[in-house]
Computed example of a mutant assay.
Amino acid sequence: MKKIILSCAALLLAVTIAGCSTDKTVATTTSGKITQEQLYNELKTQYGTTTLQTMLLNNVLEDQYGDKVSKKDTTAELDKLKAIYGDSFDATLKQSNITLDALKTNIRTTLLKKAAVSANAKFTDADYKRAFEIWTPKMTAQHILVADEATAKDLITKINAGEDFAKLAKENSTDTTTKNDGGKLPEFDYTSSLGTDFAAAAVKLKDGEVSPTPIQSQSGYHIVKMTKNPGKGKWEDRKKELKEILVTEITSDNTKLLPYLAQVVKKANVQIKEDDLKDAMAPFTQPAATSSSSAPKAKDSSKATSDTATSSSDSAAATSSSAK
């Protein structure tokens, strides 16, 4: 994220400089002076290709799919991140050297990429069934979190013997946020910071049931008592949610995403007038095979060769995943 912000700022500065008189002096020292032309050429050499690629890609995505992504959509995604980080949200942005406006821009770019994939991807029943293994409905439950499996098993034995779950949570849970409320968790599903493995194990429990064995996550070992589980139902009835999983999977993977971005770039008929920057869109225009079964069949599909192709979405994804 920091690299992209710096490179964008650098190129914008370079463009501004290029529009001015090239003999104007920017700085002087005892050893000589630096002109605007020298500064522009240096900025273009260091940041020009990657920044132009980012700017052009954002422009063509906005042109072709901008009407598919509203301000409300961007705000909703931003609110999810704020919910994950809570009071530490602003501090996290500052520590990451990311402005709120930059984060909003990156979120919107990610949503535009998702819109492009969603409009062009063709998913099979096998794809939907695979996504269904990950997907869970929103559930509510209580949990007790402990550091080791032996302690978790001992607590399960006590619960099965009739001891009060809420009381044991207050006395033993290491989750300081929920322990004093009997271990009550906020509503969660497969996308929550608890992790997909946690959700996959929890969804097997019926209302009122306690997990027969501890559920392991990055935080430790959980004992879960299900409060409300609406059930997964049939995959055929969940295609909208499952498509979101599949689209996100593609958007998060450079190799899978590039064929879709290549179609967007091809449709835009991008023409780069400056020879020094002519290869900026090469990752999207050089033909390469793709192994993605749902990828569009386009001759101009290309393999991921540039980190900047998906840098806008990576920052938002990294921000979210680091909260787990």
Rank of each mutant, 00 (worst) to 15 (best):
K204Q: 15
K184I: 14
D164Y: 03
E77S: 10
K266D: 13
K44L: 13
I144S: 00
L43K: 01
L145E: 03
Q95I: 10
A309T: 15
A14P: 06
I84D: 10
V146H: 01
T196C: 09
D164R: 07
G220H: 10
T22H: 15
I250H: 04
A27P: 07
K94F: 12
K239T: 13
S320F: 09
E163H: 00
S7H: 07
K33V: 09
S321A: 12
P259C: 08
L205F: 04
Q53R: 15
I272F: 06
N41L: 15
K104W: 00
F123K: 11
S312Y: 06
T105D: 05
K80E: 09
L277P: 06
N229R: 03
M139E: 08
S312G: 07
S315Y: 11
Q216K: 15
G86C: 02
Y260P: 01
Q53Y: 01
S193L: 00
S7P: 00
P259A: 11
P212I: 04
M1I: 08
T45W: 10
D148W: 05
T16V: 12
D23T: 15
G48K: 05
L52C: 04
G233E: 11
F165V: 05
D101M: 06
S88P: 00
L6D: 13
V210N: 09
D175Q: 03
D148R: 13
S292Q: 12
D73V: 02
S21I: 00
A262Y: 00
N254E: 07
D300W: 08
D300G: 08
A91C: 01
N120S: 15
M281W: 01
L258E: 10
E187L: 01
T109K: 08
T248E: 09
I4E: 11
Q216E: 14
T109R: 10
L246K: 10
E77Y: 11
V270C: 11
A288C: 06
G220S: 13
T251F: 00
N269T: 02
S294L: 04
S321H: 13
T75H: 08
C20P: 00
S7L: 02
K324M: 06
A201R: 11
K225N: 14
A102M: 02
S302W: 06
D314Y: 04
V264H: 01
T54I: 10
K239L: 08
L100S: 08
S301W: 00
L246Q: 02
K138G: 05
K138Y: 03
T285S: 09
F89S: 08
T45F: 12
D314L: 04
L258A: 12
V60T: 10
D307V: 08
Q36A: 13
